[in-house]
Design a protein around this nucleic acid. Sequence first.
DNA 1: TTGATAACTGAACGCTCGTTCAAATCAAAC
DNA 2: GTTTGATTTGAACGAGCGTTCAGTTATCAA
Lengths: 195, 195
Amino acid sequence: MARKTGSHSEITGPKVREAALSLFAQHGFAAVSMRQIAAKVGVQAGALYLYTKDKQSLLYDLMQAHMDELLAAWADEPKGDSALSRLEAFARFHIRFHLERPDAVFIAYMELRNLSDENFAAVEALRRRYEGELEAILRAGQAEGAITAPDVRLTTMALIAMLTGVNTWYREGGRLSRDAVADIYWDMVRGAVGA
Amino acid sequence: MARKTGSHSEITGPKVREAALSLFAQHGFAAVSMRQIAAKVGVQAGALYLYTKDKQSLLYDLMQAHMDELLAAWADEPKGDSALSRLEAFARFHIRFHLERPDAVFIAYMELRNLSDENFAAVEALRRRYEGELEAILRAGQAEGAITAPDVRLTTMALIAMLTGVNTWYREGGRLSRDAVADIYWDMVRGAVGA
DNA sequence: TTGATAACTGAACGCTCGTTCAAATCAAAC
DNA sequence: GTTTGATTTGAACGAGCGTTCAGTTATCAA
């Protein structure tokens, strides 16, 4: 008689994704083999195909899951009423969220090239939705006269680049706490938009 | 009788590097094969080894050459006397230099993981030298009371991330000219450091 | 204990990789 | 036309790739 749904597979499946995330972030999608992922999980390569259609799907699923989680978490984030308080909420949220999952962030930005055209389009659309959130805040701020942004689109991309850059240098246990880091970034964002 | 030094090789050599740069930027180091690079040049893979020791050296040489050029160009850039005018010179220089060579910039930031430890250390040192240039400007600005940067190191990395992000969205022939782009970025940089 | 199914193994398949190198071709000088 | 060195070809080598699947093992309920 069949076992109940999910038994061993509910352990191995997440392990496959964790191993893939870690190895893709460390070495890059194309440089990591399915055999290496399997070895990290403790199975043979053939077993991976019980949990992912193929290597490309594995990457795509990781990237899509990250973007979905980012958008959902932002949607749930308490925001203020004014554009400026929403901008502050965005900056602090972005820093916190990105520092909490460095591997997923890294993959989300570095591995776009390794996605097939169809998968790339899907992930790109999610990225644009997230960028759109900040862009809407900036437009509202402009309308409220609270900020200055000669080109809102450019400002959006520049701020996201600056905020996302936190992952390239931040080390846990370094000189600055996460809150101090968020404070400084917020000050810079506020200054950058003339608020 | 032997041909004089440098004849056909002075054509093929640069072509190998150009093809490698373009393909590495487009697809990533690990995803591009020596056969593909050779095909783009119009030779067979075996011919590449007349111009590069191996695949790893090809990447390293491209990245090192880019960093050397960046540092040399910055050293030659006219700067002002005050920290603020040097900061403006840096911001405008960074935008211009990075927009002029998108493939090299892309590789310089994206392919660090694919460098061997020794090569990584060498390129990382060059990156730190460039970051050090901005950091020195910010420290001088702080000392002159011209800017505010609670943590100069963080501010350095944040500004470089913001400026380098220009390559992720800028399209030649888009809505904004390069000068307009540089203007906006400079305004944001100035605002970010409270000047 | 038995039988059924889930989960995994291990090897095969066709393919491609980076690199090497003997042979071939090209081109300049005489 | 010949000689010589530069440059390239083309195939081989050993290794590894992603993926498949028949067979095996583990697990569970009856």
